[in-house]
Simulated assay, not measured.
Amino acid sequence: MSRRTIPLLFSGLVAGTALVACTPPHNSDITWQINEVYLDPATPASLPGDVTATMVMGGATVTGDTGCAAYQGRVKFDNLDDPHSVTFSTMRFQETQCIGAQRYFHDALVTLLDGEFAVTKTDKEMRLTKQPAGLDAPSIRLVATQ
């Protein structure tokens, strides 16, 4: 083994160790189906059967589909392993031409997915409640699909 190989092997081990230390939280990369979007008591909350909206959150990013268009952005958790709050930022949504109920929920998600949310989570269900929370605060209910 030449002297050049040893530093390369060592740097590869260090890089590999860094990757292991940065593994995402145990609940990341779960595909969540968005089942309900609560804006206020007078508007429908449940997505119609023909609308499928999803969300996948990693350690620092979020991606998904509103049922009309794909989106992506940044997320910041207060605690990666047991989150009580998450902040969405730099959200980008693809342009869409959808109409009706699909467009209603697309527009609702475009409006909501920015800023801080309180997180209430079980293994199979999660609720994101817009902060600061008040009476009838907007929220999103998600169900794990995996």
Rank of each mutant, 00 (worst) to 15 (best):
A108P: 04
F105T: 02
P83R: 02
T120I: 05
A108K: 00
T120H: 10
A18W: 14
D107M: 05
K76F: 00
D29N: 14
T5M: 06
A133E: 11
L47D: 03
N35W: 05
G16W: 11
S89D: 13
T5I: 12
G12N: 12
Q72S: 13
M91H: 04
P7K: 06
M1E: 13
L142W: 01
T122N: 02
S85P: 02
V62E: 08
P44R: 10
D78A: 03
D107G: 01
T129A: 07
A60L: 10
T52R: 09
S85W: 00
D50F: 11
L109S: 04
C98E: 02
D50W: 06
S2E: 03
V119K: 07
P48Y: 09
L109V: 12
F88S: 05
P24Q: 14
A69K: 05
T111I: 09
A60V: 12
L19D: 08
D82A: 15
D107Q: 09
V110Q: 08
P48W: 09
T122P: 01
D78V: 03
V86S: 01
N35L: 15
L13C: 13
Q94I: 06
T61N: 13
Q97W: 04
E95D: 12
G67C: 07
G115T: 07
D136A: 13
Y71D: 00
R127Q: 13
G16K: 05
T54Q: 04
T17S: 12
L80Q: 09
I140H: 02
G59N: 15
T17V: 10
L9C: 14
C22R: 08
T122S: 09
L19N: 12
R4N: 14
G12Y: 11
L112Y: 05
G64L: 12
T90A: 13
T90G: 04
A42M: 06
S139M: 04
S28D: 05
P132H: 06
D29V: 07
Q94V: 07
N35R: 15
Y38F: 15
Q146V: 09
M55P: 00
P7G: 09
L113Y: 02
V51H: 07
D136K: 08
M57A: 04
S28H: 00
A101P: 10
T17Y: 10
N79T: 04
G12A: 15
N79Q: 12
S2D: 08
C22F: 09
R127E: 13
A21N: 00
A144T: 01
T90V: 06
A69S: 14
L113K: 01
S85E: 10
V143D: 09
A137M: 11
H84I: 04
A70N: 08
L128D: 01
T23M: 15
V143C: 03
W32M: 10
I6Q: 06
G134E: 03
